[in-house]
Amino acid sequence: MGLTAVPDPVFSQLMVGPGTAIDPRREPGEAVAPIDGTIVKLHPHAFVVVGDDGRGVLVHLGIDTVQLKGEGFTLLAAEGDRVEAGRPVVAWDPAAVEAGGRSPVCPVVALDAAAGAVTAVAEGGVDVGDPLFQWS
């Protein structure tokens, strides 16, 4: 759906970086690693995977979900784990997040990327394994 539509200016104004956002299916699901690499930071509501080239991608599960303090999120991996793209990292239920009055939209952000470095952003429906964007 693109970052500019995310209901949080930190993301919509690209303050964290360029990327996109996923409007998840409202059913229990798993957030997966966006790239091959190492999980350098893992919170229930957000995680960062850094590839061998040193570039990191942030996946944030819902907006203001830090306030849930992990409730409703199950970690399926650990900090320091090496993961391949597509590997489940956190199980959660976007419908439950939404029922709690928060947006379940998931920003996926290229950290420290220059504006314009992210291109070919996917539009419409995506499935696990589909490319979301190109980071040149």
């Binding site: 970086g17 350098v40 930071k41 850094v50 570039r55 990191g56 950290l111 420290d112």
Partner: peptide, 10 residues
């Protein structure tokens, strides 16, 4: 100056 570094600092 790196958002990656600052987030990883946690």
């Amino acid at each position: 100056k790196s958002i990656l570094s600052v987030l990883a600092l946690d």
